[in-house]
């Protein structure tokens, strides 16, 4: 049996690509098609964590009435209490010069 010439095989492949509507790429050059072909992963990604209904979220929905957020109320009361005792959060630096980070470096 005689061997088939490579050129004939290439012609066969080209014809096959034409028939089945695939791209003819004999040298296997990278066309980046796989980035277009792959499905988008974002839409399924954002649904991984189940939506949690919190009081704050419920109040933001704007359904006509609001619920008293007890935890938030208590947190704010705690902050006030701490401020009253002089244990509140430090003042924000107005410029880079007065920030504590700068003075600590030395």
């Amino acid at each position: 049996m005689a061997a088939v010439a490579p050129s004939r095989l290439a012609a066969l492949t080209r014809m096959r690509c034409e028939i089945f509507q695939t791209s003819y790429n004999p040298t296997s050059v990278r066309t980046g098609a796989k980035y277009l072909r792959a499905r988008l992963r974002g839409p399924s990604m954002i649904n991984y964590y189940p939506e949690e209904l919190t009081v704050a979220r419920f109040n933001r929905m704007g359904g006509g009435f609001k619920i008293q957020d007890w935890d938030e109320y208590e947190r704010l009361a705690d902050v006030e209490e701490k401020k009253r005792r002089g244990k509140g959060a430090p003042k924000k630096a107005k410029s880079a010069a007065e920030s504590r980070r700068m003075s600590r470096k030395r």
Binding site: V29, R30, T31, G32, L36, L40, I46, Y48
Partner: peptide, 30 residues
């Protein structure tokens, strides 16, 4: 960490199509 992950998920979702387009151009040897 979960909040950061949620942020990342929304960022990926918002930029995915544009990133794919750039990836296609950058990886295309032709």
């Amino acid at each position: 960490r979960v909040l950061r992950d949620i942020k990342a998920r929304h960022g990926v979702n918002a930029n995915e199509i544009l990133r794919r387009a750039y990836l296609y151009v950058a990886r295309n040897q032709t």
